[in-house]
Design a protein around this nucleic acid. Structure first.
Lengths: 184, 184
DNA sequence: GTCTATAATTTGATAGAC
DNA sequence: GTCTATCAAATTATAGAC
């Protein structure tokens, strides 16, 4: 159950696949496009990830690990719930502003019904783990601020709004609303 | 600028296309699949919608008109802002619980970067019109309740969470949170 | 409006050499 | 691990008959 480590071409493939999936969904990824981008042939991509579902699952799992790593640190026990949630907001914010990318599992979650089972399950797992993190992050903030569900839902939806309307301010507006509710 | 009316096969095609797009995104629609479902050939689908982008744009525009029609009525001037927002929640809620479908523009908005321009613009238009409706819906509820952006973002994100985790309760939880904030 | 027929491209995937 | 070669299937789209 250890987190898998990817290096070299495998990592490059995952990088390219994640970028495409976050921009256009699961179907936006093709073995030939990935191969071209990393400078190998499509059959070599199949060597690393035999089926497309394997690739999709690996992308989601690696993404999940990366997000949870970023959420966990710095590991300060005295940190307020508000500051911890602000870190979650910041992760999404920088991806959106710097690269125009929204959460991978926001895109894939929206088309979950049509995803291969292992990929859909990995997306489900992402939300479970992030909600689990949020539950402990809010620990001790006695009923103050929005619920974990509400925080995560707001952020996911705000990314879509900001992207689709080309108004990044809409994301910040939501972040402000979330954080303000901690000063109740 | 009148709303286009679709009947017969054209309407059936749009129905099928909307269903597929809401389940799996823009790429989840193929002319052959649609043709089979409505009992004609794919070339006949092209007669009604020459290019796929034409089809996509028509689906989004019709969906937008339908949602705004449902939001507008019943047209009661004495209705509270809270009740109007509850109507928006109800539209999404029944689609999710009855058919397992989330908002069309939630799915397409998430992959907006990869959509043909006319389709992306139609999705943008959907959010503009719904946010416009929400602004007037909240008229007179002096600062009470969440902002239009926050309401819409929460609902979109909650649909994704509910769908991806197979926990419809998560959607209801968000609706409850939104409506509670009107009793401030 | 719908059909047949077909074109051109892209897709996921495999076999086997090096 | 990467390659060449290839496959079967699916895709969007068009021409032209009825």
């Amino acid at each position: 159950m250890d987190a898998q480590l990817y290096t070299g071409k495998a990592a490059e493939i995952l990088d390219a696949a994640e970028r495409h999936m976050r921009a256009g969904g699961y179907d936006a990824v093709s073995f030939r496009d990935l191969a071209d981008e990393v400078g190998i042939k499509s059959s070599s991509v199949h060597y690393h990830f035999p089926q497309k579902a394997d690739l999709g699952e690996a992308v989601v799992r690696r993404y999940t690990d990366n997000v949870l790593d970023a959420l966990a640190m710095p590991d300060d026990a005295e940190e307020s719930a508000r500051d911890r949630i602000a870190r979650l907001c910041g992760i999404y914010r920088s991806a959106l502003k710097d690269d125009g990318l929204i959460c991978l599992c926001c895109v894939l979650g929206a088309e979950a019904r049509d995803l291969p089972d292992p990929v859909a399950e990995a997306v489900n797992g992402f939300f479970g783990r992030v909600l689990g993190w949020a539950r402990t992050a809010l620990d001790g903030s006695q009923g103050q601020g929005p619920s974990c569900t509400q925080i995560l839902a707001s952020l996911q939806g705000a990314m879509i709004l900001a992207l689709a309307t080309k108004q990044p301010e809409l994301f910040d507006e939501t972040v402000t609303d979330i954080l303000e509710r901690f000063e109740g």
